[in-house]
C-alpha cells in the first residue's frame, strides 16, 4: 500500500473511507473501460494471428515505405517548429511589446482548428484551382499528394507544441540571467547557448516529445493532402486505414500496435521528465 497523501493524513481534508473507495472505484472503472481496454485491444488484435503474421505485416514493402515517409515528414517538421518555438518564446519572454497576448493566442490557433480544415487550407493554396497551384505546376513543383503537402500538414498540426511549452517556462525564468550575461559582454548567441539553453533544455525536450508524438500520428490533415498512393504517399496512420478498409485486420492492427508502442514510449519519457526534472519544466506540469 502506498503512503497516504498529505490530504489523507489530516482529518480536515479527509473524506470517509467508503467515499474514498467508491470514488476510486468509479473513476478507475471509467479509466479501464474508456482507456485501458482500447489499448489492450490494439495489442490483442495485432497478435491474434501469431507473432509471425505480426512481424510480416511490419516488414512488408508498403509498410516500410509508410514508416519511412512518416519518419521523414516528422524529421522535417520537427526542427522547423523547434526553431520557431525558440524564436517565439525568446521574443515573448524577453521583451515587452503590444499585442503579446494576441500573438500567444494566434500561436495556439492550430490546436483549435479541425485537422480536416488544416488540410483543406493547403488545398486552397496549392491545389490546381488554388492561389499558387497553377504557377507552381508551371515549374513542375508538386505540393499536394506528395511529401511537401504531408510535411506542411504535419507542421500545421504540431505548430504550437514547442512554443507553448517554452513561453510559460521562459516567462517564469525572467530576464536577469541573460541581461547579466549581455552586460558582461556576451554576444546574443553566446547568451542563448550558455545561459538560456541550459535553463530550458528539459522543457525543450518535453515540447519536442509531444510534437513528435503528434507528428507521427496525425491522420485528418495528412489524409486530405496525401492522395493515398500505396507505398508512396501513405504515412503509417494512413497505411493502417488502407489495410483496415481492405479487411486486412491483422495487418492494420500490427502497424497500429507499432504506433501504440511509440505512444507508450512517449508517455514513459514524458513521465520521466515530469518526475526527474519537475523544477525545470513549466509550472503547468509540476504535479
Amino acid at each position: 500500500m502506498a503512503t497516504l497523501t498529505r490530504f489523507e493524513a489530516r482529518a480536515a481534508t479527509r473524506e470517509p473511507t467508503w467515499f474514498k473507495w467508491t470514488l476510486i472505484g468509479v473513476s478507475l472503472t471509467f479509466f479501464a473501460v474508456f482507456l485501458l481496454l482500447p489499448l489492450i485491444t490494439v495489442f490483442h488484435e495485432a497478435l491474434k494471428k501469431g507473432v509471425d503474421t505480426y512481424l510480416a505485416a511490419l516488414v512488408e514493402p508498403d509498410a516500410v515505405a509508410a514508416i519511412r515517409l512518416t519518419l521523414t515528414a516528422a524529421a522535417i517538421a520537427l526542427p522547423l517548429n523547434l526553431v520557431f518555438g525558440v524564436a517565439a518564446a525568446w521574443a515573448i519572454a524577453k521583451f515587452d511589446f503590444r499585442g503579446k497576448h494576441v500573438l500567444i493566442t494566434l500561436i495556439d490557433l492550430p490546436f483549435s482548428v479541425s485537422p480536416v480544415v488544416a488540410g483543406l487550407v493547403y488545398v486552397l493554396v496549392f491545389g490546381m484551382q488554388g492561389w499558387l497551384g497553377p504557377t507552381l505546376a508551371g515549374y513542375d513543383i508538386r505540393i499536394l499528394f506528395s511529401l511537401p503537402g504531408i510535411v506542411l500538414a504535419t507542421i500545421f498540426v504540431t505548430f504550437p507544441f514547442v512554443a507553448r511549452e517554452l513561453i510559460p517556462l521562459m516567462v517564469d525564468q525572467g530576464r536577469d540571467e541573460e541581461e547579466a550575461a549581455a552586460t558582461l559582454g556576451a554576444s546574443g548567441f553566446q547568451t542563448f547557448l550558455r545561459v538560456t539553453l541550459p535553463n530550458i533544455k528539459w522543457g525543450l525536450l518535453y515540447g519536442i516529445l509531444l510534437c513528435n508524438a503528434r507528428a507521427l500520428g496525425e491522420f485528418g490533415a495528412v489524409s486530405v493532402l496525401s492522395g493515398h498512393i500505396r507505398g508512396q504517399t501513405n504515412t503509417m496512420p494512413l497505411h493502417v486505414q488502407l489495410l483496415y478498409d481492405n479487411y486486412d485486420y491483422a495487418g492494420a492492427f500490427a502497424v497500429a500496435a507499432l504506433l501504440a508502442m511509440l505512444a507508450l514510449l512517449t508517455l514513459a519519457l514524458k513521465s520521466f521528465l515530469e518526475w526527474r526534472y519537475a523544477d525545470e519544466l513549466a509550472a503547468s506540469h509540476r504535479h
Binding site: 482507456l35 494512413l238 505512444a263 513521465s271
Partner: peptide
C-alpha cells in the same frame, strides 16, 4: 482520486491518462 488519495497503481494511471494525446487517432 489521483491528487487526494493513495491507491495501488496510481502512478501508472496518472501516466496513462495522457494516452489519447499520444495515441494516433486512427489507432
Amino acid at each position: 482520486s489521483l491528487v487526494r488519495y493513495s491507491f495501488p497503481g496510481k502512478k501508472l494511471v496518472d501516466a496513462l491518462v495522457d494516452l489519447p494525446f499520444a495515441l494516433p487517432t486512427a489507432v
